[in-house]
Design a protein around this nucleic acid. Structure first.
Length: 388
RNA sequence: GGGCGUGUGGCUGAGCAGCAAAGGCAACAGACUGUAAAUCUGUCGGGGUUUCCCCUUCGUAGGUGCAAGUCCUACCGCGCCCA
């Protein structure tokens, strides 16, 4: 993997560049759609390509459980298995430490903790989630599929990621809950740092992706909402031999704070290496995070919301399940030229969703991805023109 | 013509003497950011000073009860069976 910066903004920390991999080039800044189970739900790989998606991220936790990395490896690794010819990332399972742990216990999101959803719960040092156990070496999970106990630590995660063979892989980290207090986060960060070094150590220099490609390992910066911890983490992780960096965990109580927190980290990371923001990307977040210095970011929103009937348009979010759309014989977005907007109208898509037809979700998934990718494409153009 | 059964809020459908009346659907509102979950939550007769109060409801009209969607009578509608 190779990262080149073409232009640095003088108005913000935004930068224009590209990541070169043996499966092609990713123009940055770039959205990374989430293909957890080696698929963008409802779409086939060829269709995903038609949404202008340049790179996808899959998850080793899910693929380890089903179908198992051996099956994928035997099929010719992830690219060949899912017939996706462009670059791929895999997530390390670190997010599942949150989502299947405290995230599940409290039903909260991991990124922005809205004050009204906080009921005074605080996670203190040495507290464990109900369903998983986090220790210094890794995490004992229980399979959501059959309840089987399953241990994943840095070594396990890297070994699975090597077998899957994505172009870019991540260190195994603990995505801490936003409910954690300072002492919890300190300890958690220590673990994440230790695991990061361990990942570097166990990663085989000879591990190859599909077609003999080299895998790039990104280290993940944590530290929650605490400035000194974020900076400490960025310095520590940034000082290790990673080819790029992930920025994970929570980002405070509001969007403005999120931008600042990203900047704390970005300012400490080696400038020439790519930065990936993990799991952030509401449409309204995208410009902000790019201005804060993020090169790539993954987010489930365009695909997840599509399956809930939400279309992103220049008029805002539309809930296409609402019966009022049965009377609208017009495209989702009049200015959009995606295959869905050129060929289908709101009334039909509304009908499909209300009738429980999966094609409704598929059409929205396609449109949303195209819309997000076009949105980011426009931002790249703006950086190029010096507007951002 | 006779017999049996049935009629509940937008729909569906429980309730068979002490409920503004289960559940489901629809509707309306909300949540979702490295996808456990094509999911979850709230409202859903009307009004109010909204953890409580008032009004109007269970085909229609009467009746019996302290109390009736719930029992009785008549009528109307619908269904099935027998002539």
């Amino acid at each position: 993997m190779n990262f080149k910066i073409l232009k640095k903004s003088n108005k913000s920390r935004a930068r224009l560049g590209f990541i070169e991999t043996e499966h092609g080039v990713v123009e940055t800044p770039c959205l990374v759609p989430v293909a957890t189970q080696a698929v963008i739900k409802t779409l086939e790989s060829k269709e995903v390509e038609q949404t202008k998606s340049q790179i996808l991220i899959s998850n080793i936790f899910h693929l380890h459980l089903k179908p198992g990395e051996k099956i994928v490896e035997k099929a010719g690794k992830l690219h060949k298995f899912m017939n996706w010819k462009k670059p791929l990332m895999t997530d390390s399972g670190g997010y599942q430490v949150f989502s299947l742990g405290f995230g599940r216990d409290f039903g909260l999101g991991s990124k922005i903790l809205k004050e009204h959803s906080q009921k005074g719960e605080i996670i203190k040092l040495n507290t464990q989630p109900q369903k998983i156990k986090i220790n210094n070496d890794g995490v004992v999970f229980h399979s959501p599929i059959n309840g089987d106990e399953l241990f994943i630590g840095p070594k396990e995660s890297i070994k699975i990621q090597e077998k899957l063979g994505a172009d870019i892989i991540f260190t195994f980290d603990e995505c801490a809950t936003p409910l954690a207090d300072l002492n919890y986060v300190k300890k958690s960060l220590e673990r994440t740092h230790r695991w990061a070094k361990e990942c570097l150590k166990v990663k085989s220099p000879f591990a190859k992706g599909y077609g003999g490609t080299k895998q790039a390992l990104y280290g993940i910066v944590q530290g929650s909402r605490f400035k000194d911890l974020r900076i400490e983490s960025a310095k520590f992780i940034g000082g290790l031999e990673f080819e790029g960096f992930g920025i994970g965990g929570e980002f405070g109580n509001d969007k403005k704070t999120m931008g600042k927190m990203i900047e704390w980290v970005v300012d400490e990371l080696p400038e020439k290496k790519p930065r990936h923001l993990l799991g952030v990307g509401y449409l309204e977040d995208i410009e902000l995070i790019i201005k804060s210095g993020v090169d790539t970011f993954d987010c489930t929103v365009p695909t997840h919301y599509a399956r809930r009937g939400i279309a992103f348009t220049s008029e805002g979010k539309l809930d296409l399940k609402k019966p009022k759309f049965l009377k609208k014989n017009e495209p989702l977005d009049k200015s959009c030229v995606c295959n869905v907007c050129l060929n289908y109208k709101k009334d039909y898509i509304c009908h499909l969703l209300k009738a429980g037809e999966i094609t409704g979700m598929k059409l929205l998934t396609f449109h949303n991805l195209w819309y997000f990718n076009t949105f980011v494409e426009d931002i790249r153009a703006k950086i190029k023109r010096g507007e951002i």
